[in-house]
């Protein structure tokens, strides 16, 4: 049986301080111990579903976006073990999550009382060194956890009962030691999917060999194969639910994604929320795409993972 830890169900369950960690059906021990008493805080006001903050100081923008959602304490309980998932694909401009955003998130987690903050990755250390993300993580007191992508023992098979195309994922073993997951993608172009954001970033927790199965053998001749890839992304999201998502929309490529180099768009925005569908539906419009044209968004909405209708999303925007 799987469980959804969206905001409404959490309120019903009395787990309002955070969406727990997140692999559907599992809550970390810290979450279980510390969940009580949080419902009241959530009920205090009608908080936005989406916070969009624009500014030249990207760390300040990230901090303000989280504050608008109710503060990091809403998502990270004292003593929680936090996993963060930035994108460190390459040090080309507009391709990786801004170190300033990552620094701000680690700081907020620590200020909220997190016992530890770990940056999980199967990418090589070189990517983290080249992008400056290794320094950002370590200097803020977090740990970079490098997982050997070729060691199957470092990944745990996870059934995907609601999967339409993906029936079993292979999730990084270290992930299961955490109470909270903060998803930190950069939004950008993607040659296969047109768009990448919160939904696709979770492939960073899944093993590369399993991710490879998202690409069907006949992808070179069958146009439906790209749709298959997007269905797999949506399916993976049914078994991993981030507690919080912060999207780096400060400077990002809108052509030649996801690796670049490509045309760079500087929107200077940080977008925060818990609804992946709503966040991605907003972010794709930053460079003229329509949520209806992004299959992963549509398929995630069909899974009930979030709200694709912007008219039903409470969005607050602020400029610093």
């Amino acid at each position: 049986m799987t469980h959804r830890f969206d905001r409404r169900s959490l309120l019903r369950r009395g787990l309002g301080w955070g969406a727990g960690a997140l692999l559907a059906g599992r809550i970390g021990p810290a979450a279980r111990a510390l969940a009580t008493g949080a419902v009241e805080r959530l009920n205090q006001s009608a908080r936005p579903d989406l916070a969009v903050v624009t500014g030249d100081d990207y760390a300040a923008a990230a901090t303000e976006a989280v504050r608008l959602l109710g503060g990091m304490e809403r998502f990270v309980a004292r003593g929680a073990r936090v996993a963060i998932l930035p994108n460190a694909q390459r040090n080309n401009p507009g391709v990786y999550t801004s170190p300033a955003v990552v620094r701000a998130v680690v700081r907020m987690c620590r200020a909220a009382g997190a016992r530890e903050v770990n940056c999980l990755t199967w990418l090589p250390e070189k990517n983290w060194l080249d992008t400056g993300l290794a320094a950002a993580v370590r200097e803020e007191g977090a740990k970079l956890v490098l997982v050997d992508m070729k060691d199957p023992a470092r990944f745990r098979p996870v059934p995907v009962p609601r999967g339409v195309a993906l029936k079993e994922a292979a999730v990084m073993d270290a992930f299961f030691d955490h109470d909270v997951l903060i998803n930190l993608p950069i939004t950008k172009d993607h040659a296969g999917n047109k768009f990448t954001g919160t939904l696709k970033n979770l492939m960073g927790l899944n093993s590369p060999s399993n991710n490879r199965t998202f690409h069907r053998a006949d992808w070179q001749t069958n146009p439906d194969s790209i749709a298959h890839l997007e269905q797999c992304i949506a399916d993976l999201n049914t078994v991993i639910t981030p507690t919080l998502c912060l999207v780096d929309a400060t400077e990002f490529i809108i052509t030649n994604g996801p690796f670049g180099p490509g045309e760079l768009l500087k929107r200077r925005q940080v977008v925060a929320g818990t609804d992946r569908v709503a966040i991605d539906s907003y972010c794709c419009t930053l460079w003229g795409l329509k949520p209806g044209d992004i299959a992963a968004i549509q398929r995630a909405a069909a899974h009930g993972l979030g709200e694709k209708d912007s008219g039903r999303v409470r969005r607050v925007e602020k400029s610093l």
Partner: peptide
Amino acid sequence: GDDLFLFIDGGADLFLE
């Protein structure tokens, strides 16, 4: 070959095609 995915991830599809 397919190890291009390890370098440029989703960008590999275009080259492999």
